[in-house]
């Protein structure tokens, strides 16, 4: 599906029609957003939101989840956290902030038709979509992988790129999930490293390295290769037989937020029908099951997600990621 400006415009005007009460209660001021969305996606989201709320000016900054979180941590340490809203990859990050009391519970925020398992039960953060991590390959790759273990093939030696968990939240969750899989675990990651996997930067550079034919295979989030392939990029996305890891890209409001009404409006927009349709138009699997997934995606019901013990992951996170960094020298 192509995301055109006209389409965005239609979506935004549909949004205005759909939520007249929001448009009438004019919320104003500046909203500071820190996000891990890629530059064009974040720009599109911000634009659609600003159209809906012409009184709000969003000032935003993007970076990998790891980069955004270190920036936020530094600001918290210095006593002046700047963002009102945080929209980053994974719920583990939000769980950490929640236990520190850094998130504001907003039970009053309307969560649309987004299923409850996307939402924190204390309403401090809200999953906005489903982003899975699978395998991408160049169409000129020596073979088409179907399982995670295919990446251990000698023909994939020094040909696999993946994002660094220090930068990408999705990659961090993926490593944590892989460690928990009975058939994969540390022995898989060790053999992957021995086969010359390169863990560097975020998902964007992985997409670029594979599309640019510098590497034949990539471990990457789904929508990048699917969306770029639709535009003509020489890549394909594969859901491995063992299953994919998944994140929900939650949004949450900081306890130190200055413009709470605008922040709540932003959260509600992402969860609303128009917000979910925007996500789908941008190429993401929407959280709202009633919104149809973008073209090129496998049927959401057929996607197998690797089981994931979040409590265990939270406990093991630091140690696992350090060990992985040593393994890959990233």
């Amino acid at each position: 599906m192509h995301l055109t400006r006209r389409r965005l415009g239609t979506l935004a005007s549909a949004a205005v029609l759909a939520t007249p009460q929001l448009a009438r209660a004019r919320i104003e001021g500046t909203l500071v957003l820190y996000t891990s969305q890629l530059e064009p996606d974040a720009a599109g989201t911000v634009r659609a939101f600003e159209r809906l709320h012409p009184g709000i000016k969003v000032e935003w900054i993007r970076g990998g989840t790891g980069q955004i979180m270190t920036r936020l941590r530094a600001e918290i340490a210095a006593g002046t956290p700047r963002p009102d809203v945080l929209l980053v990859a994974d719920s583990l990050t939000f769980e950490g902030l929640k236990t520190e009391g850094r998130l504001r519970a907003v039970p009053e925020a309307k969560s649309g038709a987004v299923p409850a398992d996307f939402l924190d039960k204390d309403r401090t953060y809200f999953g906005t979509k489903l982003i899975t991590t699978g395998i991408m390959h160049h169409i000129r790759a020596p073979f088409v992988p179907t399982r995670w273990t295919d990446l251990l093939d000698p023909r994939a030696r020094n040909q696999v790129a993946m994002p660094s968990p220090a930068v990408s939240g999705a990659a961090a969750i993926h490593v944590l999930a892989t460690v928990q899989q009975p058939g994969l675990g540390w022995s898989y990651l060790e053999r992957l490293a021995a086969n010359g996997v390169q863990a560097r930067g975020g998902n964007g550079p992985v997409m670029q390295a594979v599309a640019g034919a510098e590497r034949a295979f990539g471990i990457v989030i789904d929508y990048l290769p699917i969306r770029e392939a639709a535009k003509g990029a020489p890549v394909r996305f594969v859901v491995p037989e063992e299953g994919v890891s998944a994140i929900t890209e939650p949004v949450g409001i900081l306890s130190t937020a200055r413009n709470v009404p605008a922040a709540i409006a932003f959260v509600e927009f992402l969860l609303s029908r128009p917000g979910q349709e925007l996500a789908s138009a941008q190429g993401f699997l929407p959280a709202d099951p009633a919104v149809s997934p973008p073209a090129g995606f496998p049927d959401p019901k057929t996607i197998k997600i690797m089981p994931f013990d979040a409590a265990r992951a939270l406990r093991e996170q630091e140690e696992t990621l350090r060990r992985f960094a040593q393994l890959t020298g990233s």
């Binding site: 500071v32 957003l33 530059e39 900054i61 963002p83 975020g202």
Partner: peptide, 21 residues
Amino acid sequence: YGPGSQTLGVLVFTLQESGQS
């Protein structure tokens, strides 16, 4: 730089760094 104060030079390198070549 911070939110709202990106310069042209910064924008080029953040775009390239995040894979939007």
